[in-house]
Simulated scan of single mutants.
Amino acid sequence: LGKSGADADAYAKEVVHSDFEEAGDNDVFRKVRADFDAAGIAQSDAQIRTAMEELLVTAVEQIRST
């Protein structure tokens, strides 16, 4: 979405907050899908889900290293 700095931090918090809506990651996917659509960013559902899986691995690695 081209966000950086405080805007990126605020968006990350919105995404995390959306994860509390229901079990699993479908709530996060719906948010990201809607935000990409609203911004005119062409990404397939498969591309978004793949990125989510890769970023989850990165997040786990970051948590383990702290």
Rank of each mutant, 00 (worst) to 15 (best):
residue 1 L to K: 08
residue 2 G to K: 00
residue 3 K to M: 07
residue 3 K to V: 07
residue 4 S to I: 11
residue 4 S to G: 06
residue 4 S to P: 03
residue 4 S to M: 07
residue 5 G to S: 07
residue 6 A to D: 07
residue 6 A to M: 01
residue 7 D to E: 15
residue 7 D to I: 06
residue 8 A to N: 02
residue 8 A to V: 01
residue 8 A to G: 05
residue 11 Y to E: 09
residue 11 Y to N: 02
residue 12 A to N: 14
residue 12 A to Y: 09
residue 13 K to P: 01
residue 14 E to A: 12
residue 15 V to A: 09
residue 15 V to C: 02
residue 16 V to T: 15
residue 17 H to N: 11
residue 18 S to D: 13
residue 18 S to T: 00
residue 19 D to S: 12
residue 19 D to M: 04
residue 20 F to Y: 13
residue 20 F to H: 05
residue 20 F to E: 04
residue 20 F to K: 07
residue 22 E to Q: 12
residue 22 E to W: 00
residue 23 A to E: 13
residue 23 A to R: 14
residue 23 A to F: 08
residue 23 A to P: 00
residue 23 A to M: 15
residue 24 G to H: 02
residue 24 G to P: 08
residue 24 G to D: 11
residue 24 G to F: 10
residue 26 N to L: 06
residue 26 N to E: 14
residue 26 N to R: 02
residue 29 F to G: 05
residue 29 F to E: 10
residue 29 F to W: 07
residue 30 R to F: 04
residue 31 K to G: 00
residue 31 K to I: 12
residue 31 K to Q: 07
residue 31 K to H: 02
residue 31 K to M: 05
residue 31 K to R: 10
residue 33 R to Q: 09
residue 33 R to H: 03
residue 34 A to H: 10
residue 34 A to L: 03
residue 34 A to T: 01
residue 34 A to M: 15
residue 35 D to R: 02
residue 35 D to N: 03
residue 36 F to A: 03
residue 36 F to L: 14
residue 36 F to Q: 11
residue 36 F to C: 00
residue 37 D to F: 06
residue 38 A to P: 02
residue 38 A to W: 11
residue 39 A to C: 07
residue 39 A to F: 12
residue 39 A to I: 05
residue 40 G to T: 10
residue 41 I to Q: 04
residue 41 I to H: 09
residue 41 I to E: 09
residue 42 A to H: 15
residue 43 Q to K: 15
residue 44 S to H: 09
residue 46 A to C: 06
residue 47 Q to E: 13
residue 47 Q to L: 00
residue 48 I to T: 00
residue 48 I to R: 09
residue 50 T to S: 13
residue 51 A to K: 08
residue 51 A to H: 04
residue 51 A to W: 13
residue 51 A to Q: 13
residue 52 M to E: 05
residue 52 M to S: 12
residue 53 E to C: 01
residue 53 E to L: 05
residue 54 E to Q: 12
residue 54 E to C: 13
residue 54 E to I: 11
residue 55 L to N: 05
residue 56 L to F: 02
residue 56 L to I: 13
residue 56 L to G: 08
residue 58 T to G: 05
residue 58 T to W: 10
residue 59 A to Y: 14
residue 61 E to W: 12
residue 61 E to N: 11
residue 62 Q to E: 14
residue 62 Q to C: 01
residue 62 Q to K: 10
residue 64 R to W: 01
residue 65 S to C: 06
residue 66 T to K: 08
residue 66 T to W: 00
